[in-house]
Write a protein that binds this DNA or RNA. Structure first.
Lengths: 338, 338
DNA sequence: AAAATTTGTGAAACCGGTTCCATATGTTTG
DNA sequence: CAAACATATGGAACCGGTTTCACAAATTTT
């Protein structure tokens, strides 16, 4: 049966204020009473109710974490990074996943309401398809918020992003300089994806720098999924004979394409290079091992958590919104022909 | 600036009780006042503070979810299942990951304290290495709790488990009946793992049923990781010439073994069958595609969440502790020789 | 030794809601 | 038309803590 602070106070023969002070180590409590209270607490296994503490302290010691999904290693890494710093600093993690259930819009409403009803002290939001309207509403909540892989600095919100562009550039540099490939197809993700866009820009930029015109290079739009990759292969097929390489905006699509390619009798990495972006857990273990661009998702999680706690714990300090950019890293394996 | 219910009451010219009733649709409120209050609320964008609501309702509308890790597709599936039902029923998910940070013991303490301080209304716990002592303490908290893949029915706690034994049996049946293999090695997980133990039992049982003695079959102990699989290959190697198949207690170890096997010039699936357990996301995409046993982790998450909410929402109803067993499914691909 | 300061404690207000109860009015029912 | 009941509302207690403040006792400073 749950005890309250008043009952403990009565048992110890003191007032609740004294118990509270003993509990928090705040204010004055004599050594004798402290000990007496400690004994009672231990004896009855008393634990203060977090709801009451939160209400009077006006803090929940909980940080919201919003992720688009939990499939793939990607998001797991973010969680790991976030959880590591939050838990080590005494905070809890309230998780919302956008793709659970069918309705992303509903999921978004739920995390927004968690923020507005102050269920959390701050939030780390990874929501690629959120609109500016919603974000600017959010920014008016005066709640520490940080966005992942999405830049809203102009709206006064912190963000941690990853350098897609330079990742893409170094991939193309490798394909062109090391292998001498010149005819490279690009498979984009969904139109709305900033990641897809930036990776494509890096592709274009690097080719331009090498004096390769990308006007007549085949570019396809898909959806970042394995199935999407398989489907796009049907169209890609026609170009295959004159292609040196296929650069996919993520690993899953690369996997789908390689799969179909093999079914079709081509050898990815030998007949045509296929490379990806993300460095998924399995990327090094498929056949052929995938050359890709590693994204430091663990660091993204970690740094965003640190940043949000700084904001939460010193809300008075005025700080400009920051955009922290983390570097990507080219991971050369075999599917590029190496 | 955050408004309180009192300020809304003042603005609407009514008492807080009336506002509260209008908000919750409880008790009587005339259509006129209801409308007036609604208008004020909308105008000032008022949202009740969840901390206060939780305190007075004595419910947090939050369920704790504890996972050993977030790497691998496994846990992501659990999260998806849990989140789907929790969010659709208006609950939030408080996540604790045991392997974030370095200290599992500390992580365990944290989730236990979240439970004891009633930060959650109930908890879904996936903690393979928890000891009975702790569990029995937990069971005294009078908080709805359900364990995943760990049976504590005897201590009066619900659990959702997966039928490892019959999964293992059907795998061995396949290897023996379909392929005629008789000399099969088994790679266990950590000694402490119940999963590993049950899968091994299934292996033994099925062999026995086929009249195959497993006394002189090679059995190794590893640790469920990719690296562990690679390491064990060094020992496995000596037996390889007389082996028909290697049955790994999970997919990651199978992957590690196949990797080393290939480096060593053997063709897994052709020279020796290699099969796993778990059906990880990538299992079908590696070379050769892995024959394995699928575990319904999404369902595990979903069912456990449904069960916990039933307990939370009707705590008065007496129900015996249940153990729900979900069936596994053999997934035949190519690494078994098919 | 008086004044000032530090230490120890409890009463009461507060955090921001919900809920019980009393009261007032409007409607039915007998 | 009085009694019974449904409707509408506000006051006050309550959820379980924290924190401010007042006050007394013990210590230190002057």
């Amino acid at each position: 049966m749950k005890l309250t602070i008043s009952q403990i106070a009565r048992l110890a023969g003191v007032s609740k204020s004294t118990v509270s002070r003993a509990l928090n180590g705040s204010g004055y409590v004599s050594e004798v009473t402290r000990r007496k209270i400690q004994d009672i607490i231990r004896k009855y296994d008393y634990v203060p109710d977090s709801k009451a503490v939160s209400l009077s302290k006006r803090r929940t010691f909980t940080i919201g974490l919003v992720l688009p999904s939990t499939s793939g290693p990607f998001y797991g890494e973010v969680i790991r990074g976030v959880e590591e710093v939050l838990s080590s600093r005494g905070y809890f993690t309230l998780l919302t996943v956008l793709d659970s259930g069918q309705d992303e819009v509903r999921a978004r409403k739920r995390y927004l309401s968690a923020i507005r009803e102050r269920r959390v002290d701050g939030a780390i939001i990874f929501d690629p398809t959120i609109d500016e309207e919603t974000v600017s509403k959010l920014s008016r909540c005066r709640m520490p918020i940080i966005f992942l892989l999405k830049d809203f600095q102009s709206l006064g919100i912190d963000s941690v992003v990853v350098d897609n562009l330079s990742g893409s550039v170094s991939m193309v540099n490798h394909l062109v300089e090391k292998h001498g490939y010149r005819c490279i197809a690009f498979i984009r993700g969904p139109e709305v994806s900033d990641d897809s866009e930036e990776r494509f820009q890096g592709f274009v930029e690097s080719l331009k720098r090498h004096g390769i015109s990308c006007d007549d290079l085949p570019v396809f739009v898909s959806n970042f999924t394995f199935e999407g990759g398989r489907r796009i292969y049907k169209e890609l097929r026609k170009f295959l004979h004159r292609l040196d390489a296929v650069f996919c905006a993520n690993d899953e699509m690369a996997l789908g394409i390689m799969e179909e390619m093999k079914n079709d009798g081509y050898k990815p990495g030998i007949d045509v290079a296929v490379v990806g972006f993300d460095d998924a857990f399995w990327a090094g273990h498929i056949e052929p091992p995938l050359t890709t661009v590693h994204q430091p998702m663990y660091e993204v999680g970690k740094i965003s958590a640190e940043r949000i706690l700084d904001r939460v714990e010193s809300p008075d300090v005025f700080k400009d919104p920051v955009k922290i950019t983390l570097r990507t890293r080219l991971v050369v394996r075999k599917s590029c022909g190496c």
